[in-house]
């Protein structure tokens, strides 16, 4: 059960070296003995806890992906099974935290807000991209398989490399720009209610990268901007306050070879987005904008 790296060989060589060079003092030996006992007790407690949990009716079984390229003995990817006592309202993130705090402190995953706002805990749960803190255990079939998001490099256990996703997000210049300022120096840049309503859903992205991970096209073409970045471009391109010039610039970015035209309307991104952003709809609308922008018959 425990996935601590086996430390046996290292310890024995160390103690062998110690005996050669110096005879340990009585105090050292006593402390060593104490540490050993404490570790034993801890291991026993963990084992008991695991046994109790496994026997209990109301426990859930988690199968969690484990992998650490930097530690020998964990370089071969594998799945660890954890039995976690179920409590009402428990999310996948809660269960993972329980497993980490109770059984194996080396179990690694990102999380922060625990309320679907920070976007750090998107993972692959039972075969689809989910935000762990927003996914109820009661809605899943057991055993629950938890894996890192597909189509990104795995750093360790459930942690993936996000750099590429962030690069794509930055490529669309995800910040407000305009050269159409209101007359008065201190005047506000007002947005009409209708326009705000139009971009409302697109502003909700939490940069979790679930959509990017679910996309067939992004998987095969690393340069494809991906749903989240295109949605970000939509958020600004559709914002009337940016003005015509900036909109042209934005359309040029999304029209490039690896932009909106890569999308094959498979709807997988829309399906997995934890913030229910209609990504495909936004991508399709940008495609039409791009066409209208380039084709002029009148």
């Amino acid at each position: 059960m425990s996935t601590q790296v086996p430390e046996q060989p290292e310890e024995s060589t160390e103690s062998a070296a110690e005996t050669e060079t110096q005879i340990p003092s009585k105090g050292d030996a006593r402390r060593e003995e104490k540490r050993r006992r404490a570790a034993e007790r801890r291991a026993q407690k963990q084992a008991e806890e695991a046994e109790r949990a496994a026997a209990d009716e109301d426990t859930i079984e988690l199968k969690v992906f484990r992998y650490d390229p930097e530690v020998e003995g964990k370089q071969e990817p594998r799945f660890d099974t954890f039995h976690v006592p179920f409590t009402k309202g428990m999310t996948v993130l809660d269960a993972l935290m329980y497993a980490r705090d109770t059984y194996d402190s080396s179990l690694t995953f990102r999380h922060s807000c625990r309320q679907a706002i920070c976007g750090s805990d998107a993972m692959f749960v039972n075969g689809s991209q989910k935000l762990a803190c927003k996914t109820q255990i009661s809605e899943l079939q057991e055993p629950i398989r938890v894996e890192p998001l597909p189509h990104a490099e795995v750093t360790k256990d459930l942690v993936i490399e996000m750099e590429h996703f962030y690069e794509q997000m930055h490529a669309v210049e995800p910040y407000f720009q305009t050269n159409e300022l209101p007359d008065g120096e201190l005047e506000e840049q007002r947005q009409s209610r209708e326009n705000r309503e139009k971009i409302k859903m697109s502003t909700r992205c939490i940069w979790c990268s679930a959509c990017m991970s679910s996309c067939n096209i992004a998987a095969g073409d690393n340069e494809y901007l991906g749903p989240a970045a295109i949605n970000k471009a939509y958020r600004f391109a559709m914002d009337e306050r940016e003005g015509e010039d900036i909109k042209q610039k934005r359309l040029e970015i999304i029209e490039q070879e690896h932009g909106v035209w890569r999308c094959q309307t498979q709807f997988s991104c829309t399906e997995v987005c934890p913030k229910d952003i209609p990504l495909t709809e936004h991508i399709q609308e940008l495609k039409r904008e791009a066409v209208k922008n380039n084709l002029k018959f009148w």
């Binding site: 692959f124 075969g127 689809s128 890192p148 795995v154 590429h164 679910s214 073409d221």
Partner: peptide, 18 residues
């Protein structure tokens, strides 16, 4: 042309099953 990640050892993990 386009290129994609090769995750090496763990390439086959977490592929879509659904």
């Amino acid at each position: 042309m386009s290129q994609s990640y090769n995750r090496g050892l763990i390439e086959d993990f977490s592929r879509w099953r659904e």
